[in-house]
Design a protein around this nucleic acid. Structure first.
Ligand SMILES: [Mn+2]
Ligand SMILES: [Mn+2]
Ligand SMILES: [Mn+2]
Ligand SMILES: [Mn+2]
Lengths: 220, 220
DNA sequence: AAATATTTTTAGTCTAAGCTAAATTTTATT
DNA sequence: AATAAAATTTAGCTTAGACTAAAAATATTT
């Protein structure tokens, strides 16, 4: 194989990167769910990706997959494309943050390095995409993220929204309705011990009470 | 099949459109050369494309291929994408006209109709791309071209360059060196009967003598 | 510790899209 | 008209990437 990274392979690597970000290997089933393919297909691909040279993933039967250094580079390459594209679609074509993901998912596999450089330069080498996700640098290192989940704040604490996790357009539009977008100032007015709900003052929006399903996905 | 037009199919349709534009069906060999595949592969694909419903091409053994109405629509769709993308890459990212073709060839298959609409609107619904090729309209009709080859001009005649045929970057850069780009004013100062050479005054460039290999590819 | 449930892998099949080599058909040349 | 050359098609093979059904391994409950 050596150097032909198909779109399909790029998608696998991207998802393995994501699922193994916490240190635990990506499981067959999780990958299958993320990629919309059957688990058996994932097994087949993991075997292939771990047998090419250089290997792109480390895979041991029944123990999930992690990326090799080469695999990670390839994943970061695609992620950089994706996030630059999202930023650029928003800035130059008026896409909204809930619309960009799908388009970027298709474009990320076909743009040239030249195209990448041009949009990065045109955007002023941005550090985060419209959802606040960090954009891997041109030399393919992922900046480290010093944010923490909104869910970890307690009464009286405050912060600036840096990042929102999740690609579901409806979810993103809901957050936008609450004002919970990157850049927003948030004050925690109350914390409910039992359900984890937070009462928030977001910029000048009316106060709102949000549950863990939201506060775990928003980072400050 | 019904509605899944793969990238490969789109490329076949595009080339059939081009090769059969003069009324004669596209031949297997010509298609193979254009697409960079073996003639046998073309035969296989033509059989497939003529057997799907609705059929995309009309194909009779040994007689080449033309497009059906559905095939032509699909081809025009891709061509519209290609030409809008080229225009847009030049206008917004500073690509030069010899650089855009390859990038557009990859992007044309993956952009959404929404993306198409957005760039068309941003560009003010352009009629021609950077090479002067006509852009199919949003409802997928190809405007008709009233240009004629520079080669058909004779001493004393003049015209405005409208279109340049060919995707080879070196060729395009050569034309640019001569000033033969869309918009240029050309006066024919002399015509050589035997080799067909024309002596041209292009805008304020120094006069130049160009052969049929060039004058047949430039349209006024 | 067994039994059950879940996860993962294997085995076998399918389609798209290519390939080569050989056969056939069409076209061009004597 | 016969022959040679060129173009095209057929036949059979390959690879990527999916699928289903069955088998095997691991994890969870009782
Ligand atoms: Mn890149
Ligand atoms: Mn994003
Ligand atoms: Mn379109
Ligand atoms: Mn063009």
């Amino acid at each position: 194989m050596s150097e032909i990274l198909t779109q399909s392979i790029q998608d696998y690597l991207k998802q393995i990167y994501d699922l193994s970000a916490d240190g635990t290997p990506a499981s067959t089933n999780d990958l299958a769910a993320r990629l919309g393919v059957a688990p058996a297909s994932v097994t087949g691909m993991l075997q292939r990706l771990s047998n090419v040279s250089p290997a792109l993933v480390v895979y041991k039967k029944h123990q999930g997959a992690t990326l090799t250094v080469e695999g990670e580079r390839a994943a970061l390459e695609v992620i950089r494309h994706h996030r630059l594209l999202e930023t650029w679609l928003v800035q130059t074509l008026g896409y909204t943050w809930d619309e960009v993901h799908e388009e970027a998912c298709r474009l990320e596999h076909v743009i040239s390095e030249d195209f990448e450089r041009r949009i990065a330069a045109a955007l002023g080498n941005p550090v985060r995409d419209p959802h606040g996700d960090l954009i891997p640098t041109a030399d393919l290192t992922m900046p480290n993220d010093d944010t923490r989940p909104l869910a970890s704040l307690r009464t009286g604490e405050a912060g600036t929204v840096k990042r929102v996790h999740g690609a579901d357009p409806a979810f993103l539009r809901h957050l936008q309705g609450l004002g919970l977008v990157p850049g927003a100032q948030v004050h925690v007015q109350a914390y409910s011990e039992f359900d984890g709900n937070l009462t928030l003052q977001v910029d000048s929006h009316p106060a709102c009470v949000v549950g863990l399903a939201i506060t775990k996905q928003v980072f400050v």
